[in-house]
Design a protein around this nucleic acid. Structure first.
Lengths: 345, 345
DNA sequence: TCAAATTGCGCAATCGATTGCACTTAATAT
DNA sequence: ATATTAAGTGCAATCGATTGCGCAATTTGA
């Protein structure tokens, strides 16, 4: 049966050479094969429809050409775009990616790490779950086992590994400045779980910008709001019904910002005239809604690319030094804080 | 060094048994091990921090526990949600997924298939690229090589394999009926590339519904519009500026429907009063925009789950019969075609 | 011209888990 | 009490590619 997939042994036999030679001929890396043999082998491999068995190679080499990616959840545009970026980049170098989702659970994440290690991945790229901040043994294990580890977006100080992210501090800072420059001082902030690095940075950005302009922040202007439309509505309602309602809301999430806008519109507030709203993340929907929403672009695809490049670099160099790459965020000003609209007032 | 990852041989040695016994004890499948030994082995494996080398097992077994997924693009909510569904389902059974993106290119898809076969995947789940319709040898190769193949969303008649999808005909049909029941007869249709199965079905649904109600369709009401905002705008402009402008637009894509809505709003048309707009896909943004957009939900996560279940079934049974699972679509009626708004007229 | 270096290739071990076959011991049957 | 059968385990081959080592042939250097 010619149906059976040929192996290097079949090729070797057909050519009267050894399997070792075939292997070497096919892997351009090792030059210790004559050009004529190499050509012969390649031609025969082609003719026989040879497809390398990567599993066998992986076993022998001690690692596969697969990179594990762990994200909180894969069907959010932000993360799926990062994955896209990673995939595009590593593919060029013959790697593939396995996707795992932690669903923001530490336990799932630990399991995922084990699965990936069992699969002998070349390394792991991770954006840690919301619950991952004090307990990081599973990530240290990855490093100890000699595998490359790279974090993206969220990072953990307690894990000695490289990371790529957007400058969240800067993004938040710029946004607040933008609001202030438009004459807003009563700026409320929907912040996120400060155990997550990116939220902590955004918070610092908000506070610093306000402090730099000598603006005091009423205690109730700082609200912990999960990334969720309904939560955004709830928080907005409470805020706007208080005796000291803000005239701007800066949310660490596009979704809670959307909730804010929805509540404001339902209650006849004008955006941006009465209340400016800015989100974070530049999810596609921010440019579809009415009014369009100001937000900070996190350059997800580029982040994925950069993370992948960093990963591949470290895979080669096996250095123990760690890099921290910060991409510049991009404030996208839209109608929800539009200056020209405001200036007309 | 206890740093080295233990293998079954280490465990065997520590226990004074053979590696074969350890293997059998760890894989509950083969019962030919005494309970006492099994317990002993498991305890020791645990103590030594044993992690199975799946690559080795895969090599021996001739296939891995990895399932390849090929999608046109991974960062569209529809596809990433399917992936999520698949991942959730197969994980329970010890499988992992590798994601490949064809970017709607046949060539990429062919390459992806090769890569996945090289990785000795257990099988492949695919939503074929737009360009994949006449040339399907690469998919036949998957089947010939004895691997399980399942298609989701888009399917190919020329490929003898099971598939899961939503009833696109039904979805389109219902939508058109809904528009007609609201008194619209001048319904334009933004259709998609008919080489793609789902678009062909939606087209059939549209035409059938119109025919069933004896409504003639002017030639220029049928417009080929790619899934893209700008294309939707362009098509709408042309349509509305013609002498026989429609009073409803049914688009096979939420994005071109969004384009339609944007153009209509910019040009002072009222939605739904002047023109009703319905999309397809129920992308999250459809419920965020103003007015909210009527659309058909494709049950992406469920589709992923169903596809995964079907896949796992076939993997076991190795039957040559093929199933075609059709999920019921769900018309989500929103403001852009809202009946109560219309009735007030 | 002869030693030294280089090139080209084969041999065989190796990666770690699985599994058919065989063997021993214990259990059951006659 | 002897013959069958079953249970529990070990041996060793196997999956397919890689690679250190060694050998022969060829080239280079002096």
């Amino acid at each position: 049966m010619s149906n059976q997939k040929p192996t290097i042994h079949q090729i070797a036999e057909a050519l009267g050479v050894s399997a070792a030679t075939v292997s070497r001929a096919l892997n351009n890396s090792d030059a210790r094969v004559s050009d004529s043999t190499r050509v012969k082998v390649k031609k025969m491999a082609d003719k026989m429809g040879y497809q390398p068995n990567i599993v066998a190679a992986s076993l022998r080499k001690g690692h596969s050409n697969i990179i594990g990616i762990i994200v909180p959840v894969a069907n959010r545009v932000f993360f799926s775009s990062i994955i896209r970026g990673v995939e595009e980049e590593v593919k060029k170098h013959g790697f593939n990616v396995i996707i795992c989702q932690s669903y923001e659970s530490l336990e799932n994440e630990q399991e995922d790490v084990n699965t990936l290690l069992s699969a002998q991945v070349a390394g792991i790229m991770i954006s840690p779950s919301r619950e991952t901040w004090s307990e990081v043994d599973h990530l240290l294990k990855v490093i100890k086992s000699g595998k490359t580890l790279v974090m993206f977006d969220r990072r953990l100080n307690s894990v000695p590994a490289s990371s790529v992210g957007v400058d969240d501090f800067q993004g938040a800072y710029e946004t607040v400045i933008h609001l202030i420059e438009n004459g807003r001082k009563k700026i409320a902030c929907f912040y996120g779980n400060p155990n997550v690095s990116v939220f902590k940075e955004r918070r610092r950005g908000f506070l610093t910008a306000m402090a730099d302009h000598g603006i005091d922040i009423p205690e109730d202007y700082l609200v912990l709001v999960p990334s969720d439309i309904e939560e955004g509505k709830k928080a907005t309602k409470k805020l706007m019904n208080s005796k000291n309602a803000p005239n701007a809301i800066f949310s660490f999430s596009d979704f809670s910002a959307l909730g804010a806008m929805q509540w404001l519109k339902e209650n006849q507030y004008k955006i941006p005239e009465d209340v400016c709203v800015a989100g974070f993340g530049n999810d596609p929907f921010t440019s579809f809604i009415t009014p369009t929403m100001t937000s900070i672009d996190q350059r997800s695809i580029e982040m994925g690319r950069a993370a992948a490049q960093l990963f591949l670099e470290e895979l080669k160099s096996k250095t123990s030094e760690h890099k921290r790459i910060l991409l510049p965020p991009k404030l996208i000003i839209r109608e929800s804080t539009m200056p020209n609209v405001l200036k007309k007032l």
